[in-house]
Design a protein around this nucleic acid. Structure first.
Lengths: 262, 262
DNA sequence: GTCTATACCCCGATAGAC
DNA sequence: GTCTATCGGGGTATAGAC
């Protein structure tokens, strides 16, 4: 009995995965707004009504894809954070370069100054991981960071996964703050209340100026990625990887992370 | 004969405008991917085939909407630039505040230092104009700065209108550079070739570091707007106008524009 | 320039047999 | 859990009369 149950459950998981895979393909071909259960079923050799045993509606399928996408990019960011933390704290060359664009910040002259740019490098590594993920999954990126799907409102289940990248960036700045402090110019008085609220909500230990700039840098980071993925850089930026890494590093300085130059 | 021609042409222009207006409404309700000629015709009391006299295909209608949207936000940006240039160069309060969020940068202490933050104020004014436009036309914003419409590729006719906001930002930095120079930290060596290419392409008079940072700031500006419009700031940023103005001002410093503090 | 009619496609969702 | 069949919509695009 429990063996049968195990078999059935496994089959159910496999079919569910196949449905989501096919749906992702359709996302690429037709976009989220036109995601259709029928087309997915057709491509899978099923009949449309059979899909309703797995997803009670089109929107539920869409939600599953959105959650998966947030988890996927969040996992990429967290993995880059772990890797950069484990290996990047001093030794020059990493054993295996994680991805093409996840190199460290420029080896400019004084590579031996202390404290080195560990936290800035972590920030850049996470930023590059997000960009790499977006380049590898442009349609899933569009699903979560592009125009909202008309007529669809994201349920509560998406907000946890949606916050993983942001939490990773916060963690880096908190680490930097605890390890060596962060250097930031003062904030315009107008923004003080909002900055204090942000700090209290997101990272109680952080100075309000850092929290506010962190949120700005977070959205600006995705501005860089979106412009590249959505084609706004066509005929403008040529060497996009170098451009992105440089811009990400400057964003890191914006939130108070220090580079190696002392 | 020419009178009839005039009447006919006027009627054609009016019907074309009505079609585009209705299409914009549908954009809001259903999204660009599902924009349908039939639905537009139905709403206008016409029959679908009649629309083909005005737009030979759905994609042509979409192109017209995209061009209109780029022109609309571009005009808003250019208008803010003109207004800020005409009135903002010293006198404190403007006669009529252009929009709610287009106030000038904080009146921090020394308001009389020279040179004042004229160029920074122009930058902020243009940034706020873009944001205001986006808040007023979220679906058109999504059309041009959100996910690309699947299966649609923008024709050459869109690139001119698409560049108007960027050109306005470039103009501000060029003005600042010619009037008082701009202050920028050096660029990482890696980025030099790309930065020089960007400067040559976009603003021959500008230092490469400024050109590169300008492009980054341009995309980051839209990152801020997109996160607000697309809902990523929900439950995160509360006072979005103050937050945005502050972030836009810091972006301006990023491209070398000086604030009033001397 | 607008109409009717038409060819030929698509969709979400459900009922009920097996 | 999958099937057929069905309801009740939707769409692009063209032909040809007026």
């Amino acid at each position: 009995m429990s063996a049968i149950r195990g078999v059935r459950e496994r089959a159910r998981i496999e079919v569910t995965a196949a449905i989501k895979d096919e749906a992702r393909k359709q996302l690429a071909a037709e976009g989220a707004a036109k995601l259709s259960l029928r087309a997915v079923a057709r491509e899978l050799g099923m009949v449309s009504s059979a899909l309703y045993r797995y997803f009670p509606s089109r929107d539920e399928l869409l939600t599953a894809l959105i959650v998966d996408a947030y988890d996927s990019v969040g996992e990429a960011a967290e993995h880059a954070h772990r890797t950069a933390t484990a290996e990047g704290d001093g030794r020059a060359a990493a054993p295996r370069p994680p991805t093409a664009s996840a190199r460290t910040v420029p080896p400019t002259g004084s590579a031996r100054t202390a404290p080195p740019a560990v936290h800035l490098n972590r920030w850049v590594a996470v930023a590059c991981a997000v960009r790499d993920w977006a380049l590898a999954h442009p349609h899933e990126y569009a699903l979560i960071y592009g125009s909202p799907v008309p007529g669809y409102t994201a349920p509560q289940a998406t907000v946890g996964p949606a916050s993983r990248v942001g939490l990773t960036l916060i963690a880096i700045v908190v680490e930097a703050h605890e390890a060596q402090g962060i250097a930031l110019p003062p904030l315009a008085g107008e923004l003080r209340p909002e900055a204090e609220r942000l700090a209290a909500d997101l990272a109680p230990g952080l100075p309000p100026a850092a929290a506010a700039r962190l949120v700005a840098a977070w959205s600006q980071l995705f501005g860089l990625v979106s412009f590249e993925i959505f084609g706004q850089f066509n005929r403008v930026v040529e060497d996009r990887e170098v451009f992105f890494r440089q811009a990400a590093a400057e964003l890191a300085r914006t939130v108070g992370l220090l580079d190696g130059h002392r």
